[in-house]
Design a protein around this nucleic acid. Structure first.
Lengths: 350, 350
DNA sequence: CTGAAAGCGCTTACAG
DNA sequence: CTGAAAGCGCTTACAG
């Protein structure tokens, strides 16, 4: 009430020390919760901290202690709901550990990725979680972050081999097993002619999902026509455009395992435009279980990756690495879960 | 080749100075691009910086210069595509200014918001962009950030009055004008019985959108039945559930201005479940123009807020404030744009 | 054009 | 239990 809170200069440890006639060392011990401090002294200091509106300067403390209280999160596309959820999970876990998240997004450009990593590293994060841009190169990343920075690669592989001096952990989705499960599910429904639809062939996740699809088809003794393997950008729009390609050959598929949900929703749209009814005369599965999957028309059978959980997991793995720098590098594969909804109908003949 | 890059200790200015027999001051001047340094000296220093793999420690520099090179971005819901796009825009602009973004998400909880703000402030951001959690209180925010921290409020108002000592800029969407435009559009198509559907009545954005709707209805001499004002959580699922309420009275509406796109898409689903065909026998408008709006069935007429642009704008406004702390507080209202698609059909009678 | 010195806000042995 | 002193990695007047 009678206080004058408008000081321009920030309140520091010295102000508090002066304010209650103790040394800065003592104030520091109080702040860090040391048991050495006399109860009465502690109370006086705490009162003074409150009175002056002290704000801890973590950067100064980190400098002195040679520690870090941040981790950097570098994403190829923050606006993608999958990564947005992932980021929310990372931030939740990071905040829970008393750290702060430094954000960087690269808009799928390796050049921007290099710049962003360079800038973030100067801010001294304890480690980095990186979901690489398409075409990002291992050596460039190494040049940007140095060989001593703990780094967790999420979701994608880097181009080129990872240099030996880099001890980078990885966290990946079980793409292969997921696509295999989706394909097996369609086979169990009675489908024989199953396509693999969408995605860029040269992305590692697309390769792995195609591999899972092929294995399931092969194990069931089913053949794969070459025109059933349709490429597209991993977006709804391009997927809708590519729909016609599925029906270009003489033997049309009755079902498609899609690269991801965006592609699957685009395919639904494309099918409607071709007078077909997904979930009735054509079966579709997706990958990701984005929010829209459960409310699309029809609701989409897909593989749940629980991106928020992946985010928490990524943060936990990185924190682990910070605490145990000399543990062997870990390559974690996160499970995916088949969620059956109406888009995966039996074949029309059955 | 013959080098030994594996030093555990980080390379500092002193190492560079020692490496080429100059003082740390000179190295610092080189780093900061000072014109004072002799060309030849500069070249030697730069070579040494490269040779030793020097990484600038921005935290130390910030401490000495009493500057900041970060801004904090605190969002009520990062997983929401609108905010994810917004965050991408903020980060783009922030990175463009050589700053880094500190991320915090509050999961719509005022208590978490307080904690997150408190933690972020300790990391010394130059300013904060805050999209408040529902029910977040002005005095609590002030207590968490202090009265000298530049803060930009985005998208929502705080509960309680903003204390006079807080000089907070705001950036808001033109909710009222947007809803008014949507309503006028439906009226122009010939609708007379138009509902306002979804949203929490006590949220400021919902109040403003309802107000725009009322003004347009009133200006056209149309009356509003009380059961046409339906509340819902701002989610697809709850909106679908509330659909029946629209048709509970004796005079059913032929169109609805929806609180946002999520609600509009939920309403579409609800209408299908009631045997109606949105875009044919019932007109719908949304708000936000999320990615799904253009590919829903039918495509959704809505108000585009261009969240990525809003993010850039928010960052620019905050940067402006950092450079000119004594400029009067600004309250910016960002325009929205009507995007007409097939969901807004004429009334069945017409 | 370059260097010596002080200092940003903290922490941490080390004495006492 | 508390304080004096040194130091984290930088920058910036100030001399020369």
């Amino acid at each position: 009430m009678g206080s004058t809170p408008q000081v321009r200069r920030k309140v520091t440890l010295s102000d508090i020390a002066a304010g209650c006639n103790v040394s800065r060392a003592t104030v520091s011990l109080v702040l860090r919760g040391s048991p050495l401090v006399n109860k009465h002294t502690r109370a006086r200091v705490e009162e003074e901290l409150r009175r002056q509106g002290y704000v801890y300067n973590r950067a100064a403390a980190n400098l002195r202690r040679r520690t870090s209280s941040s981790i950097a999160l570098v994403l190829n596309d923050l606006a993608n709901p999958f990564f947005a959820e992932f980021a929310a999970g990372v931030d939740e876990a990071v905040a829970g550990a008393g750290f702060v998240t430094l954000l960087g997004s690269t808009a799928e450009s390796p050049a921007r990725e290099e710049a962003v990593l360079g800038s973030l590293v100067e801010h001294g994060p304890g480690g980095i979680i990186l979901s690489p841009a398409e075409g990002s190169d291992a050596r460039k990343v190494l040049a940007a972050v140095g060989s001593h920075m703990p780094l967790l690669l999420f979701n994608r592989e880097l181009d080129g081999s990872v240099p030996e001096i880099a001890h980078w952990d990885t966290l990946a989705l079980d793409n292969q097993r997921g696509a295999q499960m989706a394909t097996e599910h369609l086979i169990a429904l009675g489908h024989k002619r199953i396509a693999f639809f969408g995605g860029h062939r040269d992305s590692s996740s697309c390769r792995q999902r195609r591999e899972g699809y092929r294995q399931a088809m092969h194990a069931a003794g089913l053949r794969v026509e070459s025109h059933w393997m349709v490429e597209s950008a991993p977006t709804r729009l391009d997927a809708a455009r590519q729909t016609a390609a599925l029906f270009a050959g003489k033997t049309s598929p009755t079902a498609a395992v899609c690269y991801n949900d965006a592609v699957a929703l685009g395919l639904m749209l494309g099918l409607y435009q071709h007078g077909r009814r997904p979930g009735h005369d054509f079966a579709i599965t997706g990958f990701d279980d984005i929010a829209e999957a459960q409310v699309s028309m029809p609701p989409l059978t897909t593989l749940s990756t629980v991106p928020r959980e992946r985010g928490k997991q990524a943060a936990a793995l990185l924190m682990q690495r910070l605490q145990h720098p000399d543990t062997p590098v870990g390559h974690t594969i996160a499970p995916v879960k088949l969620v059956v909804r109406e888009s995966s109908c039996p074949p029309p003949a059955a």
